[in-house]
Write a protein that binds this DNA or RNA. Sequence first.
DNA 1: GTTGGCACTCTGCAAACTGGAGTGCCAGGC
DNA 2: GCCTGGCACTCCAGTTTGCAGAGTGCCAAC
Lengths: 340, 340
Amino acid sequence: MLDTRKLDVLRAIVEDYVQTREPVGSKALVDRHRLGVSPATVRNDMAALEEEGFITQPHTSAGRIPTDKGYRLFVDQLTDIKPLSGAEKRAIATFLQGAVDLDDVVHRSVRLLAQLTQQVAIVQYPTLSRSTVRHVEVVTMTDTRLLLVVITSTGRVEQRVIEMPAALDDEVIGELRARLNSAVVGQPLIDAATRVAGVPEQFHLVDQAVVAQIVGIFAEAVADNRTDEKVAIGGTANLVRFGEDFDLSIKPLLEALEEHVVLLKLLGEASSPSLVTVRIGHEVPHDQLAATSVIATGYGPGDQALATLGVVGPTRMDYAGSMSAVHAVARYVSHILADA
Amino acid sequence: MLDTRKLDVLRAIVEDYVQTREPVGSKALVDRHRLGVSPATVRNDMAALEEEGFITQPHTSAGRIPTDKGYRLFVDQLTDIKPLSGAEKRAIATFLQGAVDLDDVVHRSVRLLAQLTQQVAIVQYPTLSRSTVRHVEVVTMTDTRLLLVVITSTGRVEQRVIEMPAALDDEVIGELRARLNSAVVGQPLIDAATRVAGVPEQFHLVDQAVVAQIVGIFAEAVADNRTDEKVAIGGTANLVRFGEDFDLSIKPLLEALEEHVVLLKLLGEASSPSLVTVRIGHEVPHDQLAATSVIATGYGPGDQALATLGVVGPTRMDYAGSMSAVHAVARYVSHILADA
DNA sequence: GTTGGCACTCTGCAAACTGGAGTGCCAGGC
DNA sequence: GCCTGGCACTCCAGTTTGCAGAGTGCCAAC
């Protein structure tokens, strides 16, 4: 039904349309590509492709543009993840190498991704749920105020200020620190809340009430997955191009970028870093973004997917280039996290 | 030269133009405002105002629009910071009250500000330079890897991973922790680097080299004012309105929002929270943003200005409302920081 | 100093027009 | 049987033209 020439024609249409942003006609196609046939033949192929729903005409007597289905076929069969050039790889490596902490890694990644793809880039912070506790610190601020700091294996730091109903001895606080640490260090964060449940009863009766309260807040802070919603965004200036090139209104996208919950839904489940997910147009789980595509993949130390990163752009985008950029950045970030 | 009626006319022009987004003519003015004179008289006043450079005509036989100079006069003399309603105040208070840590305070503030003003909101994180050290924590991660955590009086947490050339005894690390803390706790962060200079020589000769290296990185991290550039941005979706209502291209603004250094220049020096700064059009220190205005003020515990927050919008904006919102949010945030 | 009137200017919008690009189809050729 | 050149047809996009409306500046009268 679709012989190789028709596939070639589809590929040519996608490539031209991505580049020129204009419906592409049969003549322009044979001029720009060595198809070896005449415009009339191409027209017949186009009619077949349109019949199958891979391309469409904005109006009679206009050129063709790919449909979402056409992009899908293009992505699935007609394009490979092209490896980046050595120079590009080196640029990525050196750019990310300089990061001093997790925040820095995330921010550098998002900038890099935005610059490489010329799209809007999104990087989710590594989820806390699958990381382990590295250290718990209890700091006295005033008599009745403590600061609880939890450091995780991915380098994230959670902190919480606690008001106590009564002062605690420095000694007791030292003991609390020790017991909390021995209860949870090395354990998955997700288990931490239950692991500390027994801590208060290890204390003197007089201190138990206060300790129980502190431990309660600790458990709460640790169970709180609000922080899983944390994301960094970059390349919003590229949105302007979307609006210009494109009839696409950038309003829904800007709104989505403000709503981190929505964003995370766009990025989708964290997949393996070696697997790049592409969602095209209506496949994106948000009605108002039917004209945008999302390219995403997971990342994390040792290839376990802790979080997702990716780019968002118009359906008419350079899929091959963006996919390889996303893939490469995810690999390097994973690498760095494994080191740190 | 400018009698009160002319000033009234200017005020009316600004108000109408802000609301309707269209050049305002003499007839429309007398219809919408009780000026008590005829259109012809208003026309004479308009001619005078134009002569003085407060208003201008986009083209002959169009209505007038305020110039930057006109807005300036309006802001300086014709408008007062109108107090917010009780309901608004309560909304601000409850919305900010729920914050659990500094990050949360900043993010809530920026959202709130964006929502109140319907502009793009910017909140700078409290500068580290003027805050004091509350606690230093040294955490062993592996034999040759330490995590240094510095907690400041404004609730910010700085962390740095350190690779050591050789392992250190737990005892030595404990001593290091104690000596670092006693050297800098309660001291201004800005002095911390010099205050720890003498720490290494207090150690056994065998450990001095390694300790010196750690202290060096500590000093570096603390002196690093890279973190002063940290800002949160909200309400970017409101940019769409700017583009629509307005011939203003949002591109330079989006670019500025990506460049935190530029942003901070826009916000300007942190002023007292009771003093709201307004920069109008060409007064904004960025050529490409000649059609935008910035309203900013400082905030910080006890009215010492640690950082700046504000909004950015088209020169044609609701100055009175935005100024009061900026003022109110700065006050509440300062209040919360003083508490925490 | 204020007002009503009047001639003039300029935009913004709609309708009409035209050139060009692209298609579909068909008959002829390899 | 598939490919090709030719041709009539369609539709958009950009331009021109015309017109109504809004606003101004100026002047003479109050």
